[in-house]
Computed example of a mutant assay.
Amino acid sequence: MTLYLGITFLLIPLIAPIFGREKLKDSSYIEAHTFFTKLLNRNYIKAELHISLQEIAASYQKQHHGIKIVYLDANFPFVNGFPLFPHLSHNDGKKIDISFVYLDQNDRLTNRKPSISGYGVFEKPTNKEYDQTKACKKNGYWQYDYSQYLTFGTINKNLKFSEKATKDLLLAIVNHQQIGKVFIEPHLKNRLRVENSKIRFQGCQTVRHDDHIHLQLK
């Protein structure tokens, strides 16, 4: 364990730039949702994405002071194409998952999230919204909502999804010049009323995106 921790926190951050990636460090603007993301070396990105995230986060805090960009999974530090289970595309340093923003029991914005992993607690479509999950599973894509089993436990059960703050975050992301694609579930795109060509449907072959925002460089 000592050897692993030494390699993870001392050696790998020095070697990763050779492969075109760098460690995403916590700051007053950005933080990992869970320590295990860092412990498992899932917090590495290209320098260009690091700069973009810092600019997005700084801009966002001008609107919502003290609310950070809380990231989930990014990429491993080495080798393009090496898979980051269970993701299909987090393998080149250009992708990262960002958590939604929530309100606490007093309707104040908080950096806390509703699950230990950050995944698996969905903002489901209402009866009047299009249900992409139902459509995908009807067509045989059984895995589309399996991230519900990857929460590692639900916490902060009194949190509520903040449409306003999450919309502002989504706008800050899509309006950044270096961001090429954003994945979020269709019913949330429509609910938040954000129209931008960068926002795409990720396809039924992956998993649902109504528990986080996926973004990637051009």
Rank of each mutant, 00 (worst) to 15 (best):
I173F: 10
A165K: 04
N158M: 06
F152M: 10
T151D: 01
S147Y: 14
A172E: 06
T151C: 00
L159P: 04
K164T: 14
K138P: 04
Y141W: 14
G153A: 05
E163T: 03
F161P: 03
K160D: 06
L150H: 08
K160R: 15
Y141H: 15
Q132I: 12
S162V: 00
Y149W: 07
K160E: 11
K134Q: 15
L150I: 03
T151Q: 03
K138H: 11
Y141C: 10
Q132Y: 13
K167D: 07
I155Q: 09
K138I: 06
N139L: 13
Y130P: 01
A172D: 07
Y130L: 07
A165P: 01
F161Y: 09
K160Q: 15
T154Q: 11
K167G: 05
Y146R: 04
F152I: 00
N156S: 06
L170V: 06
I173C: 10
A172W: 03
L169F: 05
L150C: 04
I155T: 12
K164F: 05
L170G: 05
L150F: 11
Q148K: 12
L169M: 13
K134T: 13
I173S: 08
A172L: 03
L159D: 03
T166R: 01
I155R: 08
Y130W: 11
K134C: 11
K164N: 09
N156W: 05
A172P: 03
W142G: 06
Y144M: 09
D131N: 15
S162H: 01
Y149D: 08
T154D: 04
Y144R: 09
N139M: 13
T166I: 02
E163G: 02
G153D: 04
Q148V: 10
I155Y: 07
I173E: 10
A172I: 02
T133D: 11
K134H: 13
D168Q: 12
W142R: 13
D145T: 15
Q148H: 03
Q132N: 13
Y144D: 08
A165T: 00
L159W: 06
Q132H: 12
A135S: 12
D131H: 09
L159A: 06
T166H: 00
D131C: 08
C136K: 07
Y146D: 07
L171R: 11
E163Q: 02
W142T: 15
D131R: 07
L159K: 04
S147Q: 13
K164D: 12
Y149L: 11
S147T: 13
K138N: 13
D168Y: 08
K134V: 10
L171I: 14
S147V: 12
N156Q: 00
